[in-house]
Structures are given as C-alpha cells and as structure tokens.
Design a protein around this nucleic acid. Structure first.
Lengths: 250, 250
DNA sequence: GTTTTGTAAATTGTCAACAATATTGTCCAA
DNA sequence: TTGGACAATATTGTTGACAATTTACAAAAC
C-alpha cells in the first residue's frame, strides 16, 4: 500500500474538473501523500531546532532515516525551499535556511503590518468574554514579569498572541502570520531578549487590549503594529549590545 | 551536460559550510536547475492565463512538452503548490489553483496591510524627484480616466504601484506583496472593475502621494491601506451586481 | 610549509521502469 | 434506456540505476 491516510477517505462526489479548493476533506488528503508527510516531518525538525540553520540536508542519509527513496524527499525539500525554510544550491545540496539579521528585521516589519491588520479586524469581532480573557492573559503576564518567572512568561505570551490571531477568523491572515513567525525561528539571534523588557512588552499588551475595548480601529491597528515594531527594536538593541560586548572582549 | 547556467560561474571563496544566503551569484545559480526553470516556466503559463484556474497539469504531457522526465516536473509542481499557485490532490493530480471569492477578499486585506506598510516606510524615503514622478503618474491617469482611455490606464496604474513598492527597498515587503498580487490573478472575478471607478481610484492615488508629501507616517499608511480596501469594496460591489444581473436573467 | 593538481569517493541530477490508484468505456441485467 | 459490475486504459506514486558534478584527499610542485 502506498499511502496511510490520516483520516478515512470520505465519499467524494466530485466531477472530473478540479475539486473545489474549499473542500475540507481533500485538504486532509492532500497532506497525506508520502511527500506531504516528509514535508511536515522536515518542517518540524527544522522549527524545533533538530535541524539547525546552515545545516545540510543529505538526501541519502535522510531517505535512509525515513525509509523512503530520494524522489519524494526531494519533492518535500523543494516545497520547503519554496516556503523559504531551506535553501537550494544546484549540485551542492539543500541547507536549512539561516536568516540574516537584516532580513529578520524586515520580517518584523511585515509581521507588524499583518498583526496590525489583526488589531483592526478584531475591533469588530471582540466580545466581552474575549476582553475578560485577554485582560486575564495580561494580568497573568504582569504577575509573572513582576515575580521574574521568565520561563513561565513565554508560553503565556505565545498563547496570548495565538489567541488574538486565531480570533480574527481570517485564514489568509493566520497563514501569512504563521509563515512569518516560522521564518523568524531561523534567525540565529532570536533569543536575545532581555528579561527587563518583559514588563515593558506587557504594557504594550495592555494598551492593545484597551484599544480593542475602545472600538477605535485605527488606534487598535497602530497598537498592534507598534507592539511588533518595538519587539523588533528590542531585538535590535540586544543585538547591538552583544556586538559591543564581543567587541570589548577582543 | 546537465545545466545551462545563465551567467558564468564566478569564483567562490566558500568554506564547506552553508553558503551565505546573501551571495548574489548563488542566487542566480539557484534558479538555473532544470527544476527551477520548469518552475518559472509553469508559473509564467499560469500567471499569463495559458494555464487557466481549475485546469489539470498532466505530468506526462507536460514532461513531453518540455522534453524532460517527470521527476523534475513533479519537483517544480510541488514548489508551486507550496506557494499556493496549484493544488495537489493525491492520486488525482495537480490543478491550477482557483481562488474562491471569499479568499480573494481575504487576500485583499493582507495586501492592504502590506501596502500600508509601504506607505508608512516611504514617508522616510521619499524625495522631491520621486514626488514629481508620482504626481506625474497621477496626472497621466487623471487624463486617461477623463478621456476614457481605459486600456491605457491599467499599465500606468500598474507601473505606479510597482514604482511605489520598488521604492521601499524592502525585499521582504516586495516579495510578499508580489505573491499576494499573483494569487489574486487566480481569482476568476478579477476583471470586473467598472470604468466609472477609475477616477475614484485615482483620487485615492493623489491622496496617497499627498500623504507622502505631508511626511505623516500614519496618514500615509492609512491612505495606502484604504486604497486597497476600497479596491476590494469595488470588486465586491461589481460581484454583487453580476450576481443580481444573472439572477435577474434567470 | 604552502599551494596546486589529479584522482577517488560521495552526492546530486535525471531518467526510465514498475507498482498502485484513478478513470474510462463496455457489457450485461433490470 | 438506465444502472452497476468489470475489464482496459491512463495517470500518478515510488523506486533504483546511471550520469554529472562536487567534494575530499593525497601526491607533486614550488
């Protein structure tokens, strides 16, 4: 048997033409080809850091590791290359993409724009329940930042952002946003944020929720936008600091 | 011989590690694999409409047409699938993606956000020369709209937008923006804009340039954003009209 | 000691054959 | 005629083999 479908195939009343792309079952099937599985598997390895930026993906070794031939593997890496997670160099091989600082900063800009759109859209979608939940997130993070529980802060922070993005009910926005965040994982200097900036960052979170409550679309868009832009600035500052530090150490 | 390189290979002083992704020569080489050529070729066929949304890409016929085997062709289609230009259905084949209206509207939203970012960034980059050039575009379009030279309007309109995006000197923005625009080409109802809205649209263009001249980032971002959102609204309206028309015709 | 050069090994690029699945068309029965 | 089983065909999925290229390494030249 060639494929192991994750879900049972549903009866499809498709005519010969292209199936309507909105069809949910087929989206599931689509991810179930061997190539699709490999693509997801490799993406996980990359995003979890098992495959590190700059590392080479050896076709033979990987195909042996997964127990498949090189064909589907190459198709999977081509897909990852198209999505910017790996680099393809003819006759040299495939390498996990290593995103330089300049590009990371650019990604922050686009991410800010998309996140700002989320803020703008959410004004029309926000409910009282959502607001209390959001303020709950912010209060929790305030407490964690005050007590310096840095390890606990990040998961809550992530959940907060994911809840916001998910609440937009805007598939394209969600997809694009996640792609941008994924790419930022491939930047070496991602984990340079200093603990002191946590309280600062959370003040921005509160302003974001306040702006949602205010019902002012422009204010909300700008609050969301600036939050990401300031995160960018914080990374930039941390970067400069380590540069100076390493310069002083020489 | 396997490859026909577009440019001669330049001497590369690379160590064994992954080549720095910024290196320009390698970017050129990267596009020169057989798969890369096929990918570009297929993309052209799709974006020019030679391959229409919903149409099937037969592997055998295409491989014969291009004189290559199915392997590289499949890799190329996988890359296109990852970029959302085609749909992959296991055991059924590859189809040119047909973007439904709902998704097209969503794409307009994200495009508005990215275009708004362009407006925000350009405030800091705009020069007097650019402003006169931009006003020139707007004046030209005003004249063409007044004289109802609709065929001539669109190329100028396109050039105007491309000039703006290109002037940002922001690679990530440019890439993302172009991807979004490409995707919109795959929506059946793209060419429904009514001639009457041209003058309206160009009024927004003038406001965009005015806002750039004003030096007000927020105003500029909002002007750029709203221009795309209004284009979306115009498409929406045109869509509803044809719906009513076909409904009335029944 | 360093650089260059040439050969062997490893790796990537491509192809063609085969297996599995989907599609088409035909025959038969109701 | 219509509808369903069934065979024939077409198409996709996967694999392994071979060609071309790069890389690694050792020997020779400076």
């Amino acid at each position: 048997m060639y494929f192991v479908y994750n879900l049972v195939m549903v009866e499809s009343n498709l005519d010969k033409a292209a199936p309507e792309s909105g069809s949910e079952e087929l989206q599931v099937l689509r991810t179930s080809s061997l190539t699709g599985v490999l693509e997801r598997e490799l993406q996980n390895l990359i995003l979890t850091g098992n495959l590190k930026p700059g590392q080479k993906l050896n076709e033979i070794k990987l195909s042996e590791r997964f127990g498949v031939s090189r064909g589907p593997l190459r198709e999977a890496t081509r897909a990852l290359a198209a999505r910017g997670l790996v680099d393809f160099f003819p006759n040299r091989g495939v390498f996990v993409r290593s995103i330089p600082f300049d590009e990371a900063l650019e990604i922050y800009d686009v991410r800010a724009a998309v996140f700002g759109l989320a803020g703008r859209l959410l004004v029309d979608l926000v409910t009282d329940d959502m607001l209390t939940k959001l303020y709950g997130f912010v209060d929790t993070m305030d407490a964690l930042a005050r007590d310096k529980h840095f390890e606990s802060y990040y998961p809550v922070n992530l959940e907060f952002h994911q809840f916001l993005i998910g609440s937009t009910r805007h598939k394209t926005l969600q997809t694009e946003y996640n792609h941008l965040v994924n790419k930022l994982h491939l930047c070496r200097a991602k984990a340079l944020v200093q603990p002191g900036s946590l309280a600062l960052s959370n003040r921005e979170h509160r302003e974001m929720v306040d702006s949602l409550a205010s019902g002012d679309k422009l204010r909300s868009q700008e609050a969301f936008f600036r939050h990401v832009e300031r995160a960018k600035r914080r990374l930039q500052a941390a970067l400069k600091e380590t540069e100076n530090a390493s310069f002083g150490a020489e």
